[in-house]
Amino acid sequence: MKVIFLKDVKGKGKKGEIKNVADGYARNFLFKQGLAIEATPANLKALE
């Protein structure tokens, strides 16, 4: 799953980066902790 990092995550990505991560890791950790959001077209446009 492609995500946009909202904060730096050690070993995974830095704020503003778009990367592929495992679906479960994204849903169960990154999204719940507020560290990333899904890289949807609307979210990508908002990032610009």
Rank of each mutant, 00 (worst) to 15 (best):
M1Y: 09
M1G: 05
K2D: 10
V3E: 00
V3W: 01
V3M: 04
I4D: 00
I4Y: 10
F5Y: 07
F5S: 00
L6N: 01
L6W: 02
K7H: 14
K7N: 08
D8M: 04
D8A: 07
D8F: 08
D8L: 05
V9T: 03
V9Y: 04
V9N: 01
K10T: 11
K10M: 09
K10R: 14
K10D: 12
G11P: 03
K12T: 11
K12A: 15
K12G: 14
K12Y: 14
K12L: 15
G13A: 12
G13E: 02
G13F: 14
G13W: 14
G13L: 02
K14I: 09
K14T: 10
K14F: 13
K15M: 10
K15A: 12
K15S: 07
K15H: 02
G16K: 02
G16P: 00
I18T: 07
I18L: 07
K19W: 07
K19Q: 09
V21H: 02
V21D: 02
A22Y: 12
A22F: 11
D23G: 13
D23S: 15
D23L: 15
G24Q: 14
G24Y: 14
Y25E: 11
Y25N: 07
Y25I: 09
A26D: 10
A26N: 04
A26V: 11
R27S: 08
N28M: 11
N28S: 09
F29I: 14
L30H: 01
L30A: 01
L30V: 00
L30Y: 05
L30M: 04
F31H: 01
K32N: 11
K32W: 07
K32P: 14
Q33E: 13
Q33R: 15
Q33A: 09
Q33K: 14
Q33L: 15
G34V: 03
G34M: 08
G34T: 03
L35D: 03
L35R: 05
A36N: 00
A36E: 02
A36H: 01
A36V: 07
I37W: 06
I37D: 02
E38K: 07
E38I: 08
T40R: 02
T40Q: 02
T40G: 04
A42I: 07
A42H: 09
N43L: 07
L44Y: 04
K45E: 14
A46Y: 13
L47H: 11
E48Q: 13
E48P: 06
